[in-house]
Design a binder for these strands. Structure first.
Lengths: 334, 334
DNA sequence: TTGTAGGCGTTATCAT
DNA sequence: ATGATAACGCCTACAA
C-alpha cells in the first residue's frame, strides 16, 4: 500500500517535483500543456495529496474539531449537523469527538485535536471546569463554546439564553395555575443547569412561592437519571403538580417514571423540557418544551471560528440566541 | 500563537533536539536525569507534540475515520459509540463524518480521510455504489463496512443479518394472523433494504400469500418518508392490517401517519420496525422491532480494522451478527 | 548516553 | 515556465 507521491509523478513526467506541485496546486503560473499532462498523469497513477505533509508547511489543516459530551442525545447531532454543513461550505472538515460526559476524555481529545493542529475547535463542555479549554484558546487554537455560556467573559460562545428559557417555562407553568413545581436537573455543576435552575428559582421567588428543597434534584442529562430522580421524588410525601426537566431526554425519563407510578401526564402532573429534540414532536410524545436553535448554534459557532481563524481576532465574540416555548400536550392547567 | 517545538525545548535545555525527542518518546535509552529534566521543561513550556509532523515520518496517525449517512438517526450514534470506545481503548481516535445520504459527500470524505492518512476507515455506505470504497480498501487504506453487507465478497464487513431480520419480523406478523402486510422501505437501492425486502417477500411467498405491488413502497430511511408513504398507502383502496417498516425511524413516521388517518396502532394496524433504537422502548412508543447489536457492530468493526492494520492481512473478514425480535406493543393478533 | 544528519511529502523562495 | 533547494517538526540510524 505504498502511496504515490509528487516525486513519483515527477519522475514519470520527467519534470522536477516543484513543477508537479505547481501543476497540481494551480497557484503559480505554469504552461497549460504541462499542467494538463501532469494532472492527467496524477489521476492515472491514483495520486492523493498528502494533507499532513501539506499541513506541515502551510500551517493549516482545513479541519475543525467538535467536542460533544453525548452523541447519543439527539440534541448534539443536530448541532453537529449545523457545524458540519457550515464547515463544509467553507472547505473545512470536522473531527467529531464524544466525551461521554468524561472530563478526562475531554482533555485527551483537546490535546489530540491540537496535536493534529486543527484550525479551530467547537466545544460543548462536559463540566464547568473549562480551564484547559480557555488556556488552549489563549495560546494555541481558537475555541468557541457551543450551547454553553462560560462564567468568565473573555471566551467565545454561542448559546441560547438558558436563564430566559427557564423563566419562560416557569412562567408558563405558573400561568397554568401550578404552584408546586419541581425541578429535575442534569449535572448540578454544569453551567447550563445553573442558569436554568436560577431562571426557575427566580421566577418562583418573584411570585412569592416558597421553594421546597426536596423539589430540586440533580443527576445527569440522561433519560435514566430523570427516571430515577422522579421515582425518588414521587415516593416522598408531597407530589408536585408540575415538573421542569433539565432537558428533553430527562423529561422523557420523568414521564416514564410518572406513568409507571400510576399517574398521568398531563392530568396529574405537567411536564416541560428544554431543547425540543426531534422526538419531542412525535405524536406519541408531544412534549411541551423550550426550543433551542440547535442547527443554528452549530452554524454560528463555525462562522465565529472561521472569522477568528481568518483575522486572528482575539476579542471574545458572544452570541445569545432566543429560546421559544413550544406548547404541546404534556402540560395542563389546574 | 507560535507553538513550541522540540527545538525550542532543546535550546532551553541546552541539549540536541534528538535528545529531546528521545526523552519525550521514551523509546530509546536515555539517562533518567535528563529525561525528567526535559519532560518537566516540556510541560512548563506548554509543549504539544505535532502529530502531523510525527505522522509524516512514522506513517501512521493513530486515527480512524467513521463515515455515516445520517448522524441524526439514533442508530448511528450508537454504532459510533462502539467505534469510538473500542478505538480509544486501543489508543486511536476517530474522525466522524456525516454524509447526509449524499454519495458525493461520501466520496469527498473518503478522499479527505485518506488525504489525512487515517490508518483505517469504518463506513456505513450511503448507497449501493461502493466502488470508491472498495478501491480505497484495495490500494490505500483498510476499509470495513458497518451494518452493511456488500454484494461482492472480498470486502470486510460486520453486519446484522438483514434477510433473517425481515424473516423473523414477517413470520411474527404471520403468526399473529396477518395476511395483508405492507412494506414501507428506505432507499430502494440500498443493500440493507434489498435484504430486508427479500426476507419479507420470501416469507410471504413461502406461505402462499400473493404480494400486492401497491403494498411495497420505497423512499428514504427517514421519519418523514415513512410518514409520507404511509399516507399514500392508506389513501389507496386496500388498507393493510400490518406494516413492516424499513427501520425504526421510518416506523415512527408510519405510526404517525396511521394515527393521523384516524386509525389505531395496534388495533387497526400492526407495525414493526428494525434496529431497536433507544426511543423505541419509550413508554409512549413501545415499538415492536427487530434488535440489531449496534454498539457491538461498532466495536467489532474497529477490532477487524485494527487487525488489518497490524498485520496487513488482505483477506476479507466477514462478521454476521444475530438479530432479535423485541416484542412490545405495536402489534396485535387478528 | 548524547549529538549529527538524512528523510518523510509538501510548499515556497530563490535562481535559471 | 521550470528547476534547485530550503524549510515545516519530528524520528532514527549512525557516529561519537
Amino acid at each position: 500500500m505504498m502511496s504515490v507521491t509528487i516525486k513519483d509523478i515527477a519522475k514519470a513526467a520527467n519534470v522536477s517535483y516543484a513543477t508537479v506541485s505547481r501543476a497540481l496546486s494551480g497557484h503559480s503560473e505554469i504552461s497549460d500543456k504541462t499542467k494538463k499532462k501532469i494532472r492527467k498523469l496524477a489521476k492515472e497513477m491514483g495520486y492523493t495529496p498528502n494533507a499532513i505533509a501539506k499541513g506541515l508547511v502551510t500551517k493549516n489543516t482545513k479541519t475543525l474539531g467538535f467536542i460533544v459530551p453525548d452523541i447519543t442525545n439527539p440534541f448534539f447531532p443536530e448541532v453537529a449537523q449545523g457545524v458540519e454543513d457550515c464547515a463544509n461550505r467553507n472547505g473545512y472538515q470536522v473531527f467529531l469527538c464524544n466525551t461521554s460526559w468524561k472530563l478526562e476524555k475531554e482533555k485527551q481529545y483537546l490535546k489530540a485535536l491540537y496535536g493534529k493542529r486543527v484550525d479551530g475547535i467547537v466545544v460543548s463542555p462536559t463540566s464547568n471546569d473549562i480551564t484547559h479549554l480557555v488556556e488552549a484558546d489563549r495560546n494555541k487554537v481558537p475555541v468557541v463554546f457551543a450551547a454553553y455560556r462560560p462564567a468568565i467573559a473573555d471566551c467565545n460562545f454561542v448559546a441560547t439564553d438558558d436563564y430566559k428559557s427557564a423563566e419562560i417555562a416557569a412562567e408558563y407553568l405558573l400561568k397554568l395555575g401550578h404552584r408546586k413545581i419541581a425541578y429535575i436537573g442534569g449535572q448540578q455543576e454544569s453551567c447550563t443547569n445553573k442558569y436554568r435552575l436560577k431562571g426557575y428559582t427566580d421566577v418562583l421567588k418573584k411570585h412569592d412561592i416558597s421553594l421546597s428543597p426536596s423539589y430540586i434534584k440533580h443527576g445527569a442529562f440522561r433519560q435514566q437519571s430523570g427516571y430515577q430522580l422522579t421515582k425518588e421524588l414521587l415516593i416522598a410525601n408531597d407530589v408536585p403538580t408540575a415538573i421542569l426537566a433539565g432537558n428533553d431526554i430527562i423529561a422523557l425519563g420523568v414521564i416514564q417514571a410518572i406513568e409507571e407510578f400510576g399517574l398521568d401526564v398531563p392530568n396529574n402532573i405537567s411536564v416541560v423540557g428544554f431543547d425540543d429534540i426531534s422526538f419531542a414532536s412525535l405524536d406519541k410524545v408531544q412534549l411541551t418544551t423550550v426550543f433551542q436553535p440547535k442547527y443554528t448554534t452549530g452554524e454560528l459557532c463555525v462562522e465565529v471560528l472561521l472569522q477568528k481563524i481568518k483575522d486572528g481576532d482575539q476579542n471574545p465574540t458572544h452570541k445569545m440566541l432566543e429560546p421559544e416555548l413550544v406548547i404541546r400536550r404534556t402540560c395542563k392547567g389546574i
